[in-house]
Lab assay of single mutants.
Amino acid sequence: SKTSNTIRVFLPNKQRTVVNVRNGMSLHDCLMKALKVRG
């Protein structure tokens, strides 16, 4: 089974995003990807 960790990230202006960290990806990469999608 694939394991994925879901991390809630609290952003300024009362924004919130959820990042799924996959195996083999660093938290930083996942964060940058999530913020790019939002931006």
Rank of each mutant, 00 (worst) to 15 (best):
S1C: 13
S1G: 12
S1N: 15
S1R: 13
S1I: 09
K2Q: 15
K2N: 14
K2T: 08
K2R: 11
K2E: 08
T3A: 15
T3S: 09
T3N: 10
T3P: 15
S4D: 15
S4N: 12
S4T: 15
S4R: 14
S4C: 10
S4V: 06
N5H: 09
N5Y: 08
N5V: 15
N5S: 15
T6A: 08
T6P: 05
T6K: 04
I7N: 00
I7D: 06
I7M: 04
R8S: 04
R8L: 08
R8G: 03
V9L: 02
V9T: 14
V9E: 00
V9A: 12
V9K: 06
F10H: 09
F10S: 09
F10L: 05
L11P: 00
P12A: 03
P12Q: 02
P12L: 01
P12R: 02
P12S: 01
N13G: 04
N13S: 09
N13K: 07
N13D: 09
N13C: 13
K14I: 08
K14E: 07
K14S: 06
K14N: 15
Q15E: 15
Q15H: 01
Q15R: 01
R16H: 13
R16S: 05
R16L: 04
T17N: 02
T17I: 01
T17P: 00
T17S: 13
V18F: 03
V18D: 00
V18L: 03
V19T: 15
V19G: 01
V19E: 06
N20E: 06
N20K: 13
N20Y: 12
N20H: 12
V21S: 06
V21G: 11
V21F: 12
V21M: 03
V21I: 06
V21E: 00
R22L: 13
R22N: 14
R22G: 07
N23H: 09
N23K: 10
G24C: 13
G24Y: 06
G24R: 10
M25E: 06
M25I: 10
M25R: 08
S26G: 07
S26C: 12
S26D: 04
S26T: 15
L27M: 11
H28P: 01
H28R: 11
H28S: 08
H28L: 11
H28N: 08
H28D: 13
D29H: 14
D29A: 09
D29Y: 11
D29R: 06
C30I: 07
C30W: 02
C30G: 07
C30Y: 02
C30F: 04
L31A: 06
L31R: 00
L31Q: 01
L31T: 06
M32I: 11
M32L: 13
M32T: 11
M32A: 04
K33I: 01
K33T: 02
K33M: 06
K33G: 02
K33L: 06
A34V: 02
A34P: 14
A34S: 12
A34E: 03
A34T: 03
A34G: 10
L35P: 00
L35A: 06
L35V: 04
K36D: 06
K36Q: 14
K36T: 08
K36S: 06
K36R: 10
R38H: 00
R38Q: 06
R38L: 02
R38Y: 06
R38S: 01
G39R: 04
G39C: 13
G39A: 07
G39V: 02
